[in-house]
């Protein structure tokens, strides 16, 4: 199937670091997580989903936020070194890219870049 090929082409970041947790007992098998995950981390078993590719998870949090059964937990965040540095230095509200949320606050206006 073509899906296998797509998976092969995609890069994977560090292994065994992801905080994703799935409670298969709570899962109702609605499949919402399959729809929102951009890395095909889940797959549907007969009654509920299972994690098929944990290392591909980028912890965006879409699955856990959109799970009506509250079956998924993940410490979500943006995987961005600049954001980690900014929060360590206490500048730019610890934001990654795309500047501060509050654009009226010109003091923290930053053009630090990522994400198109």
């Amino acid at each position: 199937m073509t899906e296998g090929k797509i998976k092969m082409k995609n890069s994977v970041y560090l292994k065994n670091v992801v905080t994703l947790q799935l409670d298969e007992n709570k899962c109702t098998g609605c499949g919402m997580c399959l729809d929102v995950c951009p890395h095909e981390v889940f797959k549907m078993n007969s009654k509920h989903v299972v994690i098929q590719n944990r290392d591909a998870c980028m912890e965006c949090g879409a699955c856990s936020l959109n799970c009506p059964a509250n079956a998924i937990a993940v410490e979500s965040g943006v995987g961005c070194a600049a954001a980690v540095i900014n929060s360590m230095l206490g500048r730019n509200n610890g934001e990654c890219c795309c500047g501060p949320v509050d654009i009226s606050d010109t003091t923290t206006k930053s053009k630090s870049g990522c994400c198109g």
Binding site: E59, G79, C114
Partner: peptide, 18 residues
């Protein structure tokens, strides 16, 4: 720093790398 622009890095991974 390009981790922030990439489409597949997790925050846990970035912290571990850093």
């Amino acid at each position: 720093n390009f981790t922030g622009a990439s489409t597949y890095t997790s925050l846990s991974g970035v912290k571990k790398e850093m």
